[in-house]
Amino acid sequence: MKILVCVKQVPDTESAFRPNASETGYDESGLVFRMNEYDEYAVEEAVRIKEKFRDVEITALSVGPDRAEAIVRRGLEFGADHGVHIVTPAECRMDALEVASLIARFAQDKSFDLLFFGIMSEDYQRCQTGPMVAALLDLPCTTTVISQNISEDRKSAVVERELERGRREVVELPLPGVMTVQSGINMPRYPNLTNKLRARKQEIEVIAASETPSSEKCERLVRAYIPPPSKAGIFIEGTVEEQAEKIVRIIHEKTDIL
């Protein structure tokens, strides 16, 4: 059984973001990059499938600039067998269809049984790449997966997807198929030492994005900018004690609670 897990390198979401000089995205200077959390859950889920079934081969794939190699290695540390890096130019904003086209182009002749994605990336939060890859490869797809159980014959999976307000939909997904993983599906483990050492040395397959035919776009960026000041709440100033005092007074005046 062959599993592809697509992983993206993203900055820590609690960072102080500002647009870059060309207004095409966020300024990368000073940001700390790591694996997209949703993708970490996807990698962990793939590793759990490998532990359950024998002869499972996991490929971790990242589309991104040179720095994204670190995330392919991170995938190996978590337990992926192979690492692939489709290298895109630095500071180059890509829309979801461009990324999906690169992934689909790579995957089309590899006969993967299962393609895993995080439901979205933390920086762009589009939720588009996984379902677009599925459409490009004409594979069935289930998004927002919160549990999965592959059948003994490995021909299908019973998948729970999360809907609003805690409701769930149970879907039978035939394989080969695509899943996008919701956070909380598992508790990702820490990489073990063996995998860490292996990941450091193992060769990664590097593909230049320019080697693949130019792909279609699905949007045109006008510009990225800092949101205009909006109707934020009233900021309470002062020392911590003064702030606490003022908040208690506000609660007392505005509600019947205190």
Binding site: I119, R126, G130, P131, M132, A135, T142, R161, E164, E219
Partner: peptide, 21 residues
């Protein structure tokens, strides 16, 4: 959870633009 499940694939089906969220 319903919309993002099919909208991106619909955009591909229709060779359409796709802008999310």
């Amino acid at each position: 959870a319903t919309g993002w499940d099919y909208a991106p694939a619909l955009a591909v089906d229709l060779s359409a633009s796709g802008i999310a969220a």
